[in-house]
Write a protein that binds this DNA or RNA. Sequence first.
DNA 1: ATCATTTCGCGTACTTCGTACTCGAAATGG
DNA 2: CCATTTCGAGTACGAAGTACGCGAAATGAT
Lengths: 250, 250
Amino acid sequence: MSDEELISIWMRPERLERSGPGRRPGYSREQITRAAVRIADAEGVEAATMRRIGGELGTGAMSLYRYVPKRDDLFDLMIDLAMGELELPAEPSGDWRGGLSLVACETRAAGLRHPWLTPLLSGRPTLGPQLLRVHEFALGALDGLGLDIDEMTGYVDMVNDYVHSAIRREIGWLEEARRTGLDPERWKRDYIGPYVRQIVGSGAYPLFGRSVQESRTAHLSPAERFRHGLDRVLNGIGAQLPAGRAGHRA
Amino acid sequence: MSDEELISIWMRPERLERSGPGRRPGYSREQITRAAVRIADAEGVEAATMRRIGGELGTGAMSLYRYVPKRDDLFDLMIDLAMGELELPAEPSGDWRGGLSLVACETRAAGLRHPWLTPLLSGRPTLGPQLLRVHEFALGALDGLGLDIDEMTGYVDMVNDYVHSAIRREIGWLEEARRTGLDPERWKRDYIGPYVRQIVGSGAYPLFGRSVQESRTAHLSPAERFRHGLDRVLNGIGAQLPAGRAGHRA
DNA sequence: ATCATTTCGCGTACTTCGTACTCGAAATGG
DNA sequence: CCATTTCGAGTACGAAGTACGCGAAATGAT
C-alpha cells in the first residue's frame, strides 16, 4: 500500500544480507550517501542531483530508488553520515563546560567541512542515530548537576542554537557567493560591500553602523569569534546552574 | 552588461515614477511580493512559483521578470515585507529586557503567521531595510549599559539565534507534515510516533528517553515554552551585564 | 498629428529536476 | 531447469526557472 512509503527512513532499513531468490544488490545506501556527500562538499547540495549521484556511481538516476525512497530521505542519510564524524568520548567526562564545548567545536568543524550540513539540519527535523548519539552526549554533559531533564534539554538546545547560527553566519556569505558563481572576494567587493557602505553612510542605522566600523572582533579569526560567542552562551548557563556547580568562567 | 544583474536587490530600486518614453508598468514589486506571500502563507513557499504568482495576478510567469531579477530576490522581498510587520516603537524604552523580549515575541508572531519566514531567513543572508530596522531596535535595547558594540551585537545575535531556532522547533514537524501532504495528527501518530517509541523503548539513549517521558514542559502551551527558553537566554545575558544593570530576573 | 524611441506584457521554448512505469537480466530454491 | 523474486536502468512525464523575441503602448520631437 501507499502506507509503506510514509515511514521514516530510519524505520526502513535496507535489507542487505538476505537469503532467498532474486538478484543481489550492487550498491548500498552508504555508498550512495557517500557519493552524494562527496558531490555536495565540492559543488553544493544543489549539485547532488539523482542523475549526478548515479553518474558518480556509474549508473543512472533511477537505480538509486532501489535504495532510497525519495531524495529528501537521502538528505537525512547525508546528515547522519556527517554527524557520525563528530569525535566524542563514549562517556561524559564530568566537566559540563568541557563537554558542551567539545560538542560545539566538533559540530562547527563538521559544518565547515560540509557547508551543506547546517542549512539542511536546520531545515528539516531529523532524528538519525548519529544525531541522537551527539544529543545524548550533550545531555550527559549536564547530567548530575541537579537540573531536571527539561532544564538540561533547554540548555543543550541553547548551545546548539548558538552553534548552528554561528556556523551559518560564518559560511553564509561564502555559500551565497558560490551559489551565484562568483569568487568570494569579488562578490564581497562588488556585491555586498557597496550596499553596506551605502547603509552605513546613510546614517539611518547608527548602531549597525558602529557594529561595522568600530568592531574589534571583525579582525579576529573566525575560530576566535566562535569561541567568544560560545563563551557568552556558556557563561550564561553557568550563571544559572545550582550554586557551586558553575565551574570556572572563561 | 552582465554586471548589472549581480547587484543586490536593495540597490536595484524599481523605477516607478519615470518621465520619458515607454509604456507604464502595470504591476509593482510590492504587488508581486504580496501575492507571493499570500500563496506561501496558504500553501508553502514551494507553491509560490513564478507561474503561480503570475496566475494570482492574472498574468504569466515571465511578466514578473520586469520587476524582480531572479526568484531568489523575490524571497528577499518577501522576508522584508514580513519583517515590516513587527510592531516596534521608534525609540528603545530604556528597559533592555523588555526591549529584547518585544523583538523576540514579535519575531515569533511573524514566524508563526508566515511559516516560510524563519527557514528563508536562516537560509540566506539578507539585509533589507525592515530587517535593519528590527536589528537596530534590538541593538538600541542594549545601548547605554556600558557594553561595547561587539558585546551588544553578540547578545543580540544570541537572542536571535534562540528565537529563530525555537520557531523552527515549533513549526518544524507541522511544516514537514504539510510538505508530505498528510494532516499533522495522522503524521505524528503514524510517521514520527512509532519511531520515537522505538528509540525510547530501545534504551540506547536514556537521557533522550527521559526528555520524552519525564518532560513537564511538554504539556505547556508553545507560547509558554517559548517564554521559558527566552527567559533562560535573557537570564544568561543579565548575569553578564556590568554590575547593577541586570534588572529583575523572571 | 506622425513617427522614432523606449519600455512593458507575455507567449514560446529550452534545460533540468524528481520520479512513475516498465521490462529484461540475474540470482535463488525446488 | 524452471518458477519466483529482486535488481538495473531506459524512457518518459510534469513542473520548475528563465532566455529570447515580438507586438503593444506610451512618450517626446518634429
